[in-house]
Design a protein around this nucleic acid. Structure first.
Length: 757
DNA sequence: TTTCTGTACTAATCA
DNA sequence: AGTACAGAAA
């Protein structure tokens, strides 16, 4: 049993005691993943448990994959059969199989946050409400919070407390928006992220046969990062484990940082009450960090009131003191971080992969990136605007989604006029109204468009429907890669991007090629059994940002938010932007609970560091394009001063000398841009040199217009027709004007008087 | 219906 | 510093 070697006593206990309910409280860096993986390996290898009977829930696909790989190292191929994945992906899988009982087809779409927000936006608009009051973000958060507490729209609308809350927030219509939102999602055969958990709860509540099936199947249930579960997730796991009672949760209350999406720290604090025979194991020895870092972290977290008693300690060396860097501006902060990374790496012969820069908000990455680039330090960013959130990628994905599910309203709105095919928002509204009036689905109206509207738009819509039907067939007959390539080409999207020869256009074209490559890779990967487009879409809909990290071996500094860094470790950690209103965020200062969550976030940041921790702040920072004064964060004072080396001072010259490129920073580009704008404003034709037509100016019928005719335009004056374009829906004429040169005019709009007969 | 342009607003964290 | 939106012009 060599996999049991090198485990300390509580770790061993966590691995060996596999029967009955168990909670493992694991301090930062105490080897909790190791315990969890070895526990599963032990179940399979020593206890002879069939991997099909084990359910292990994690928060990222990456964590799941890592655990699976490590288990595979002990038990071999069998590890593939464990039900292991994120809450969302496991229950999406179950809902694909069982969702029919709730009225959802197996090919339901998963709406991402952008889809949800734009749906809410259109509902607010349709109801004629003020979109300044009903901001999509606010409304969605409210709906999301309700779903995470398992409050349906019916319960929401009949609960006087919620209604009073909304009333006092001057948003009395939120409940009704929730009702319409839920209805529209259902009609679109779509579930948002919260629905995946909400509907699983409904499924298990209303269909006991289904619940029973999965209760029998999952003899062992394990949950990682338990402190981050919300009520919805908690109830699912509790229900699934109710028959066999073999539930093991692993977590650290000090690292609970997802209250904003409904995570409830009470789940971990109250777990003991739920299970009378609960075995509690505490992992308190930290193997990751130096003594200084561990104790500095302890001194911070002790400022919080709500926590379980535990004592994290380490046998590691004392290590360096924490250093605080003070910068005058966010640009200088970036520069100091870059130069420090450069020096430390040289001095200690480290790899760039040993460094990570952590920040509170994604927008802070820009200044750091710029400085790293200037100093030729290669870096990678985790999270932020990810590949799959790019517009051109989402456009293609919307086509794929719609070809699979014609009820997907958000995908339809995205693609129906992309590339431009003459179906503008006015036409889309007509279709939606028609669908509403005749109690039909939008797709049914589109299919029979000639019974509702006529003319050019109707033809364009009919062509669109024909195209989608062809794509449908393609998907049924071919694998994901062939189908996606066909759709990208025949939808006209690829061509439109190809014709855009700007740098951004080129990039976008390459991104789409990259997406197709990714699909090819997916199809070629033998681990993926289901090679349909639907399976691929499901996979990427539930990708977590940490998962999209495919160049791990390169010499790169890692940049990410503190949230993304949870569960990771680096030798050197830089936490930047240690300023009031930024970290802690000004939005978290309203209650003690919020501030404590923010402090736990700081605790997570500190405990990522193995060898050395740098904290930095700037006295001035650009926000919304304006320079703002900043104060050092209160969290700096939370650290016991004995672990801090007080302000490491950089002389201005030292920092400047480091810059090997020596470019002038600051407002230069802004200034240049303003200059260009002002030039553009003062040049070009202004209203006074436009032609003034005589009083008898009456536009002629231009249907007989031909080349060589002399015409008068209301603004451009006299000119000669040089070329006619009678092709396509819009007739165009090229006219060479005496005072304004050659212009292309759309004849359905341009008012021309013909002076040639 | 489409395209261009000025401006108003924004950025908290994630699946 | 970006971008989403409204309004004008074509």
């Amino acid at each position: 049993m060599d996999y049991l070697d090198n485990l300390n006593e509580p770790q061993l206990e966590g691995v060996m005691n596999t029967g009955g309910p168990c909670m493992i409280i694991a301090g930062a860096g105490s080897g909790k993943t190791r315990v969890l993986t070895m526990r599963i390996a032990h179940l399979i290898k020593a206890k002879g448990v069939d991997p099909f009977h084990i359910l292990a829930l994690t928060f990222t696909n990456k964590a799941a994959k890592e655990m699976r790989d490590r288990i595979e190292g002990v038990v071999g191929n069998e590890a593939r059969n464990i039900w292991m994945g994120t809450f969302h992906s496991i229950f999406a899988r179950i809902l694909r199989a069982e969702g029919g009982k709730l009225g959802y087809p197996g090919n339901f779409t998963i709406y991402d946050t952008e889809d949800s927000k734009s749906l809410i936006k259109s509902i607010v608009k349709e109801k004629g409400l003020d979109d300044k009051v009903y901001k999509p973000n606010t409304v969605l958060n409210r709906i999301s919070a309700a779903k995470n507490r398992l409050v349906s729209w019916q319960e929401y609308l009949s609960n006087p407390i919620y209604l009073a809350d909304d009333e006092s927030a001057m948003k009395p219509e939120v409940g009704n928006i929730y009702r319409i939102y839920a209805d529209r999602c259902f009609k679109a055969s779509a579930m948002d992220f919260d629905d995946l958990l909400f509907n699983t709860n409904i499924l298990f509540r209303d269909h006991l046969d289904v619940l029973n099936k999965y209760q029998q199947r999952f003899k062992y249930v394990l949950v990682d990062e338990f402190q981050d579960t919300n009520l919805s997730q908690y109830l699912i796991t509790k229900k699934l484990a109710a028959v066999h009672q073999n539930i093991c949760v692993v977590g650290d209350d000090a690292q609970s940082i997802y209250a904003f999406r409904g995570a409830d720290i009470q789940n971990i604090l109250n777990f003991e009450k739920d299970y009378a025979d609960l075995r509690v194991i505490k992992l308190e020895q930290n193997y990751r960090s130096t003594q200084n870092i561990v104790e500095a972290a302890n001194s911070v977290i002790n400022k919080n009131r709500a926590q379980l008693k535990k004592n994290v300690w380490t046998q590691n060396t004392q290590g360096d003191l924490i250093e605080v860097i003070k910068a005058t501006s966010d640009n200088e902060e970036g520069k100091l971080v870059a130069s420090t990374i450069f020096e430390e790496r040289m001095h200690h012969q480290l790899s760039y992969t040993d460094f990570a820069v952590l920040y509170r908000t994604n927008s802070q990455s820009r200044a750091i990136e710029e400085a790293l680039r200037r100093n030729n330090v290669k870096y990678k960013i985790i999270g932020g605007l990810s590949f799959y959130q790019r517009k051109e990628i989402k456009d293609i994905l919307a086509y794929l989604r719609f070809a699979i599910n014609q009820h997907d309203e958000q995908a339809l709105r995205r693609i129906i006029n992309l590339p431009k095919r003459g179906i503008g928002p006015a036409s889309v509204d007509k279709v939606v109204v028609a669908a509403y009036e005749h109690d039909m689905s939008i797709w049914e109206v589109l299919e029979n468009i000639h019974s509702f509207i006529s003319g050019r738009t109707a033809n364009a819509i009919a062509d669109f429907v024909t195209m989608i039907k062809a794509f449908k067939l393609e998907i049924e007959r071919k694998d994901a890669f062939e189908a996606a390539t066909h759709i990208a080409k025949n939808s006209g999207i690829l061509r439109a991007l190809y014709e855009d020869k700007t740098i951004e256009g080129l990039n976008r074209y390459e991104n789409v090629q990259e997406l197709l490559n990714a699909i090819k890779e997916y199809v070629d990967n033998p681990e993926n059994e289901d090679k349909t487009l639907g399976a691929f879409l499901q996979e990427i809909a539930l990708l977590t940002s940490v998962d999209q990290d495919n160049n791990e071996d390169n010499e790169l500094v890692t940049l990410m938010t503190i949230h993304m860094a949870k569960g990771l470790e680096f030798k050197y950690i830089f936490v930047v932007g240690m300023e009031e209103d930024l970290f802690p965020s000004q939005m978290m200062l309203t209650s003690r609970a919020d501030l404590e969550e923010e402090r736990r976030l700081f605790y997570v940041a500190i405990t990522r560091a193995k060898a050395k921790l740098y904290l930095s702040y700037a006295l001035n920072r650009y926000r919304f394009g304006r320079l703002k004064n900043c104060e050092p964060s209160r969290f700096l004072e939370d650290i016991d001063p004995q672990f801090i080396k007080v302000n490491r001072l950089f002389k201005g010259s030292e920092a400047n000398n480091f810059n090997p490129v020596g470019q002038v920073q600051g407002t230069h580009s802004r200034y240049a841009k303003n200059l260009v704008n002002s030039i553009r404003k003062t040049s070009g034709p202004t209203s006074q040199n436009y032609h003034k037509p005589g009083k008898d100016f009456i536009p002629s019928d231009t249907s007989g217009l031909t080349e060589g005719m002399k015409v008068e335009h209301a603004k451009f004056g006299f000119g000669v027709v040089t070329m006619m374009d009678n092709l396509g829906a819009n007739r165009k004429a090229k006219v060479n004007f005496e005072n304004f040169g050659e212009k292309t005019l759309l004849l359905s709009f341009a008012k021309l008087k013909i002076h040639d007969s």
